[in-house]
């Protein structure tokens, strides 16, 4: 099952060619990034002024998969959760 979240998060650490975070904090809980499964870019609604964003699909603990997105200003959001 997948849920759309789209909420801001704090990240820490940076690893790999895309500076993927090693962990993030969401709703007062800490989540470690165990593996980066996929990385892709999305130009978004460029006609409305949205900038390019970078998606990370990461493996957290307990088999949960998260999609994190970094916007063009460096802000981070949790976009989707796969339970």
């Amino acid at each position: 099952m997948t849920r759309l979240i789209d909420q801001p998060i704090e990240v820490h650490g940076a690893v790999g060619p895309f500076c993927a975070p090693v962990g993030f904090r969401w709703r007062h809980s800490e989540y470690a990034v165990q593996a980066v499964l996929d990385v892709w870019t999305d130009t978004g609604a460029w006609w409305d002024g949205e900038g390019e964003v970078l998606f990370f699909r990461v493996m957290g603990g307990e088999g949960r998969v998260f999609e994190l997105v970094r916007d063009s200003r460096g802000g981070w959001r949790l976009y989707r959760v796969y339970d």
């Binding site: 892709w40 870019t41 999305d42 130009t43 609604a45 006609w47 390019e52």
Partner: peptide, 13 residues
């Protein structure tokens, strides 16, 4: 532009 279509590419690569 505000409509989705499978032929529209996701990014500028």
């Amino acid at each position: 532009l505000d409509q989705v279509h499978p032929e529209r590419r996701l990014n500028a690569q």
